[in-house]
Design a protein around this nucleic acid. Structure first.
Lengths: 229, 229
DNA sequence: CGACAAAATATTGTCTACAGTATTCTTTTT
DNA sequence: AAAAAGAATACTGTAGACAATATTTTGTCG
């Protein structure tokens, strides 16, 4: 049952204008990524509709989209279930993410502007400050912003869109192991900036590959540790 | 009820029509890729519904999915329009496709089984026959099957799904220039098989990269030619 | 004759209702 | 008492209706 364990006050509010389906989509995505809706849980359309104060239709359309993006599984005549990630799938996502990010770094080295490099530097500084201040949320946010900026500099919208989806799902799968690698991660970011500034595609590619591999190893390390508990 | 002598659960469920939205989705995708619905065209829900003999609801759900997959643009309060590919976007898709296919080749070299190599050989032979017989459709089909098999051998479902989507869109964008590179393309396929058989990841990667680059060049060549007409 | 305004039309967005199907509970039979 | 058949329930799938909004047409004024 859905109503169990859902804080009614924490439900994202739907205020902004625009199509209802969009806001329902965002609300549901938030509920899923925040684990208010847990993997495997059966999502009953009428429950969600009532919860969000809309009819079933916008909910259905939101669920359709969440389905094609891999957040929920839509079993015919049975309904929507929050997707349950497997070990294999999580690892495959990391592989794909590494691939996309690496290519983005290479393209960024080829196309970056001085303004772009400046923005990267600022984001890096912000991240380093956050690490020093030990503010986990700020570190995570700065990290995401940094990678997003690299992706933006790559100038490939198709690549960016795929990466955005993969990234969000990776973050979801691995939130239980809340990864923070500390200052080392930002030293690698600095290296990457230098490579991009030097227009050295090979170096940028190599550095990003190593960086994502480190992050991946960090994920698995934490995952293994929680496994043993 | 007539006693069939079989337990209820063991009766294999005969192929049901399945959800209408699925068939509507497939029908619309076919109409788009076949260019019966042209880029930029306004898709009126009631017209499509009438055309397919269903109500607006399944049509809407199909359009939602087509939207998230990039086939149609959904402008709020205005409706669905068949996506209009730009020159930039088409090229970006080719870049991403090359990236995904190259990684797939590398992974295939790492994981391929002897049965898999056998299947690749058969598909290659089929393609070569089709080239000799000058059967364009068969060549295209064999080519798609070959690449799909490589992707399958890579053993990464996430990568495969992304590649499938990107591939189909690439094919759509470039159908006007119906590309056939002839036997050279299949010589490259043979090289790739050898590299995979040798478990040589670097070689497989390099060959697939070159292969997709050749195909890309072929696309642009044809596109430039039609441009000038 | 052209530009602007207002009504008319067309189309999407949302809600409600009903039909089809899977699941659960109850009853019956061995 | 256990298993199977049957009824009851719950939920999804689809359809149709109504409301909101954009577009087009028409009419009017400068």
């Amino acid at each position: 049952m859905l109503s169990t364990g859902l804080p009614h006050g924490a439900v994202p509010k739907l205020e902004r204008p625009g199509p209802l389906r969009e806001r329902v989509y965002e609300a549901l995505l938030e509920l899923i990524t925040s684990r208010a809706l847990r993997p495997g849980q059966h999502l009953v359309e009428t429950e969600l509709a009532g919860l969000l104060g809309v009819s079933r239709q916008p909910v259905r359309e939101a669920l359709q989209r969440l389905n094609t993006e891999g957040w929920v599984d839509l079993r015919p005549a049975q309904g929507a279930f929050v997707h349950e990630p497997t070990e294999d799938e999580a690892d495959q996502l990391l592989v794909v993410r590494a691939l996309l990010e690496t290519e983005a770094a290479r393209l960024a080295a080829a196309h970056a502007t001085t303004e772009g490099l400046e923005r990267l530097g600022e984001l890096c500084a912000k991240g380093e400050d956050a690490v020093r201040a030990d503010e986990v949320d700020a570190v995570v946010a700065a990290n995401a912003a940094f990678h997003a900026e690299v992706m933006s500099l790559a100038g490939n919208a198709v690549l960016a869109e795929l990466a955005a989806q993969v990234d969000q799902r990776v973050r979801w799968y691995y939130t239980p192991v809340a990864r923070v690698r500390g200052m080392q991660s930002w030293r690698e970011h600095r290296e990457l900036i230098d490579a991009i500034a030097a227009r050295d595609e090979a170096a940028a590619s190599r550095i990003m590959r190593a960086h994502t591999e480190h992050t991946r190893a960090s994920y698995h390390e934490r995952a293994d540790r929680t496994e043993g508990e």
